[in-house]
Every structure is written in structure tokens, then in C-alpha cells.
Simulated scan of single mutants.
Amino acid sequence: MIQKYGRTFAFGVAAGVTRAVYAGLRRRPRDERWERTNHAGRTVDLYAGPAVAAGTVLGAVPAGGRGAAVLAGVVAGACGAYDDHRGDHRRGFRAHLGALRDGEVTSGAVKLFGIGAAGLAAGALLKERPVDQVLAGVVIAGTAHLVNLVDVRPGRAVLAVLGLGAPGLLRGPLAAAPMGAAAAVAADDLGERTLLGDAGAHALGAVLGTAVAATNGRLGLAAHAAGLVAAAVYGDEVSRRVAGSPA
């Protein structure tokens, strides 16, 4: 019963905060720094990103996400926001790591190491044994990357979060927070009025990954980590090919 109402409350807090922040940001005067051109050539705003990040993190608190989920969500959202506004559109880990070898710290490198470190720190808060802590960190950072990876068309990231989070709801309330935040902006995202951006996608994924890590033992963590690493490698290869293809 406690878990049932914990899920409902976490979902409601996340959705309510997300809608309130999103509505507040949209009432601001037009600011081109918060506008982007989407895949279809339409001008959309980035306001869903900070709104979703705020809703996800605050929704995680009543769901028992103090510490690990809050840390992962805040850092992932902040690193994503930095990339949204400072990114140079280089694609793939290889490009960013190559630039780092040449002494250039790209926004992608900030995300890679920042979210990775936050994932490991959150994993250390969730698990006791070092092996489990590392696996949990991989799951948290990997899920943050996965949600951002699928955010290439309207609604894909929010639908991914809703689909991936549903099984987690059966085992614990924490997954309700990213689901509530995603649901709150789903119509606007699908309607091509806004974008999650890296801030929103990474925050959603980090807290969702924390929910997955919190409800799995070593075998489950290892299976999830292996799948996420494989998805990251495949996504990096696809990004590299897209970046190298002619316009």
C-alpha cells in the first residue's frame, strides 16, 4: 500500500513540477538562445529540458530517491544543459575523446566524464560491494546516454522512458518520477512545440537508471550494463557514420 501511494505521489509531483516550470518558462519573452530547429525544419523551444530535469529530481525525493537519484539527476541534467548551450555538434564518443587527446575539452567530454562520475557516485550510495557499485554506475550513466541517444525525433525519448519505466514501477516507486515528468511534456514533444534537449533526456535517463540499479542484484545489473554498453557502442558507430555522410 505504501509503495502504491508512493508511486502515485512521485508521479504526481514530477508531473506537476514539470508542467509548472515548463509553463513558467514559456511565458518568458522570446529568447533565441532557447530555440532550435528540429529535424523537420520547425522552430521549437528547449524549455522542456530544464522543466523535465526539475520535475524528475523533485519527484524522486518522495519516491525514496534521496541521495543517489538526486545526485545522478542533477549532474546529468546540468551536463546536458551545458551541451545544449555550449555544444559544437560533434557526434560520437570517438570525436570527443579525440579532441580531448589534442587538449580540447568539448561539451561531449564534459557529459561523458561528468555523468560517468555521477553514476559511479550514485552507485556507491546504492550498493555495498565494489563490483555492484561499479555495475550500478554503468547502468545509471548508460541509461542516461541511452535516453539521449533515442531523442532524435519527436516523442521518442518520452515514449522510451514510459516504456522502460513501467516494469520498474512493479518493483519500486522511483521509476514513477521520470515517468511523470516525461508524461507531462509528451503532448508538446510529440506536437513539435518543444525539445527535451540533452538536459531533459539525460536527467530522465539518469533517474530511470537509478531506479533500475536500485531494484536489481548483481546478475541483473550485469545484464543491464552489458546491454547498455552494447547500445552505446552501436550508437557511437551510427553517430560517426551520420557525421561522416555527405549533407
Rank of each mutant, 00 (worst) to 15 (best):
M1I: 14
K4N: 12
R7K: 10
A10C: 09
F11V: 04
G12T: 14
A14Q: 12
A20L: 08
A23C: 07
G24N: 11
L25C: 07
D31T: 05
E32R: 15
R33G: 15
R33N: 15
W34N: 14
R36G: 03
R36D: 09
T37K: 07
T37R: 12
V44A: 01
D45V: 06
L46N: 07
A51S: 10
T56M: 12
T56D: 04
T56H: 12
L58H: 06
L58N: 01
A60G: 04
V61H: 08
G64V: 06
G67K: 15
G67F: 07
A68Y: 13
A68R: 09
A68W: 15
A69N: 13
A69M: 13
V70Y: 08
L71S: 02
A72Q: 12
G73I: 14
V74D: 10
V74C: 10
V74T: 11
V75W: 00
A76E: 09
G77W: 15
C79E: 01
A81I: 00
R86S: 09
R90S: 05
F93R: 02
H96A: 13
H96Y: 14
L97R: 08
L97V: 15
L97H: 05
R101Q: 13
R101P: 09
R101E: 13
D102Q: 12
D102C: 07
V110Q: 00
F113R: 05
G119T: 02
L120H: 05
A121C: 06
L125V: 04
L126E: 05
K127W: 08
R129D: 14
R129N: 12
P130W: 10
V131M: 04
V134A: 10
G137V: 11
G137M: 13
V138T: 00
V139N: 02
I140T: 02
G142N: 00
G142L: 00
A144H: 10
V147I: 15
L149C: 14
V150C: 08
P154D: 03
R156P: 01
R156H: 07
A157R: 02
V158P: 02
V158Y: 01
A160M: 12
V161N: 03
V161P: 02
G165W: 11
A166R: 01
P167T: 14
G168M: 06
L169E: 06
L169H: 05
L170Y: 06
R171T: 14
R171S: 10
G172P: 05
P173E: 00
A175Y: 01
A177M: 12
P178M: 10
G180D: 13
G180Q: 03
A181I: 00
A186M: 14
L190C: 06
L190P: 08
G191Y: 00
G191T: 02
G191M: 00
G191H: 02
E192L: 02
T194H: 05
T194L: 06
L196H: 10
A199R: 02
A199W: 12
A201G: 15
A201W: 02
A203M: 13
L204T: 01
G205I: 07
A206E: 08
V207L: 08
A211L: 11
V212K: 03
V212G: 00
A214T: 03
T215Y: 05
T215A: 15
N216E: 15
G220M: 14
G220R: 10
A222C: 11
A223L: 15
A223Q: 05
L228G: 04
A231G: 01
V233M: 11
D236R: 09
D236C: 03
E237S: 13
V238I: 15
R240G: 13
R241D: 08
A243Y: 03
S245Q: 07
P246F: 06
